[in-house]
Amino acid sequence: MFPTPVEKLSPGVNIGYRLILPICLFIWLLPLLAIFMTSIRPVIDINTGNVFGIPSEFNMIENYATVFAKTDAWSYMANTLIITIPTVIISVALACITGYALAIYNFRWALPLFFVFVAGNFVPFQILMLPVIDMSNRLEIFNTVPGLVMFHAAFQTGFCTLFMRNFMKALPFELIESARIEGVDEFRIFWHLVLPLVRPAIAALSVLIFTFIWNDFFWATVMLQDDAKLPITVGVRSLNGEFVQQWHLISAASLLAAVPPVIMFFLAQKHFIAGLTLGATKG
């Protein structure tokens, strides 16, 4: 293991390391902690510049309740969910079949088409923006949730295919080969043999895409216009204008928007990290 484990070094280093660890973490998460403290303070503390001290009153419930009462926080959250969940289902399902085609069959176009998915996944959003708006308009789904979901699902299919294909490529090919010799139909091989084997990849992708879409801001701003349809990221942004300088409310709302991805991350940490490394560093 590198660097040398502290247990094997002098006791001074060992204890020093254990002491310094929480301090480093504190500094690293300072902005987050500070914003949490702000979110439970009364207004008066903010105006008198009490940033780090103990709040003069603990207004946690009050502040968060105000956010829910004064804004459409619930509806923003619900909107995010009805955008996120269909996107995850469609893109992961599509990636399973496209990834299967690109990983298992050795046809001439397999690699070039795979590269199309990979390259498309990395293009800047701005080059897609205007044609996508125009097309959605013509399909009469601009400024609707399905319109946004369609785009998200299509775009995320690129990343999901990249991931799925690499995952399936690592499966033992002999299994599929022998099933073919037995005369099993290609669809049955996919459904009964490959799909159960890629369950971990499906889990990893679902968690990851959920977080990506939950945190999306750009496309929601571009594709949705009615306030009633906006997701939480855009909602929180607009609160910034509504609650001018009411930092205790802005910070409470921001933290609320961050909660679901954080829960998702803690529930499925292993999958999440496996997904982020693009399968490049296996393990």
């Binding site: 079949i97 085609a101 069959y105 498309g120 897609l128 923006m129 205007l130 299509a154 669809f187």
Partner: peptide, 30 residues
Amino acid sequence: KRVAYAPWMFLSVGLIFFLIYVIIPIFQSI
């Protein structure tokens, strides 16, 4: 010729979807 046709069937939906929403718009933008 299962093995020759099957990959295209598996690919078709995802690929068309991706082409329509990601690849073609690049050229449209240009």
